[in-house]
Every structure is written in C-alpha cells, then in structure tokens.
Design a protein around this nucleic acid. Sequence first.
DNA 1: AAGTAAATGAGAACGATTTGCAAATAAATT
DNA 2: AATTTATTTGCAAATCGTTCTCATTTACTT
Lengths: 129, 129
Amino acid sequence: MEAAKQFRKRNAILACLQRATTHPSAEMVYEMLQKEHPDISLATVYRNLARFKSQGLVNSVATVHGVERFDAMTHPHVHFICTLCDAIVDLPQMEIPESLSAEAEEISGCRVQNCRLTFTGLCEKCASK
Amino acid sequence: MEAAKQFRKRNAILACLQRATTHPSAEMVYEMLQKEHPDISLATVYRNLARFKSQGLVNSVATVHGVERFDAMTHPHVHFICTLCDAIVDLPQMEIPESLSAEAEEISGCRVQNCRLTFTGLCEKCASK
DNA sequence: AAGTAAATGAGAACGATTTGCAAATAAATT
DNA sequence: AATTTATTTGCAAATCGTTCTCATTTACTT
C-alpha cells in the first residue's frame, strides 16, 4: 500500500490543461506532465485530448505553425496570438456579442454552433523589443 | 513562336486562388490547376503559397482537419466553416467593427495586426439533411 | 481469483508540408 | 545572339505533427 495508487493519466492530462494558461499543444502538455508522470506516453496525451474534445471538455483554439493548441475554457472567449513567440493569451475582458451568431445564421442560413474571435499580432513582450 | 509562351506557374497559382471561392488547400489548388498545367508539381504550389503569404497576397484562413486553407481576399472578413463537409464560406455581409482591434490593443497591450472572426457549425446544405 | 472491458506505452504508419538537388527557365551582360 | 547568372520548378526524400496497431497493464464485475 506504500506505492502511490496509480491514477489514470487521463485525469492528470485534463487537470494540466485546466490549470494551464498557455493554451498548450499536445507536446507541451506532455512536457508539463514529465515530472508528475515520467512514464506517460505522448500517444496517451493525443488520445485523451481527442476524447476531451469530442466530449466538449476541451476546445481547439487554433493551429499555430501546424501545431494544434488546446483550451479547457470552453466558454467562448477572445484570443490573441503572437506571431513572433506563438503565445496565445485570453482576452477575457472582451465579450463576443451573442447577437453575432444569430446574425450569421440569418444571413447565411447556416446553423452556427460556435464562434471564435482571434486577434494576431505582437504580444506585449514581443512588441517592446 | 507557335509554342505557347511558358508563363510562370506562380501566376497560375495566384490567379487560381483569386478566382476560387472555396478557400482551397494546397492540394485543392494543385487539382484545380491540373487541366491548365498538368505538369505542375505539388511542391511548387506549396512554395508559392508560402511566398504569397509572406508577401501578404494570400492569407491562411483556417486549418481544417490538419489541412491549411487559403484565401486571396486579404481584407479581413468573416468566415463560416462547416464541421460536416469542411466547406469554408465568406460572410461578406457581416462587418468586423474596426473598433474591436483598438479595444483589444488597449486591454492587452498587444499590437494587433489582424483580426479573424470565424463561425463553425453546419452549412445550409448540411443542416438540411 | 477469473474474466472482461478500458487505458496505456512503444513504436510503426500516415499524411501534410518542407527541403535538397539537379534540370529548366528567365533575366542580365557581353 | 551567345554566355553567364539568378530564379523557378519537378521530383523524391526528409521532416514533423498526429494517428494507429498491438501487446501489456489496469480497472471493473462476478
């Protein structure tokens, strides 16, 4: 009973995402979990990310340089992506007007399920160089 | 002088993008050019898309299922992506308020260069099934 | 404890994109 | 027009993120 009970890696992956503020990629999650779970496999990270996505627990925020980035904040919000350092930050102060989706539906006849507002440019750090 | 003068493939690729309304991927551009240029190479398409992007002639609109999609309309506008058939359509009737970028800059200290508003859901065709 | 189902690790497979290199084409120079 | 130089291209190999296969381990049920 000494040996720490072996919890599912899945929980660790979700928890990692929930505490992250960096909108990490699969690889980043894998690296962040190295201390806690040195034996984790990258495949497990990918598998569980896919599962979380299909469960709606996690969203894909963007693909930056061919790398998908994730977010456990599923409530739609605004993002900023730095084109220099690839940082993705939330802009929680900005609201996406509810009315936008309705407007899009009316105009296009599409059924809108999701809305994403993303700015790109230079983040504060990179801009001040 | 009989033989048609050999124009650069580059022009054909850009022209193809400019007349396309589908926000094609590199592969789609390649296929669309088959009749006109059966000897074109996929690598050439990729190379020129990268060049156009760095020149600001073409924008990357989204990455759908790991495939990058392009647009020669560089003026920022609204897109809708169908999660069923992967179609990407413009919603030119919807405007992105200029003020949004300024607001984002004030709030975050970032330097905003670009803004993207994207809806996802079911397109008209797919919704009516 | 045995049997079944789900989760995982390791590495192979896959697919989109990039790159190296030699040949083809265009542009510049004489 | 011939020669040199720079750019563009086709092809195939390489790269890299992601997915898949399969054998093993872990959890659950009886």
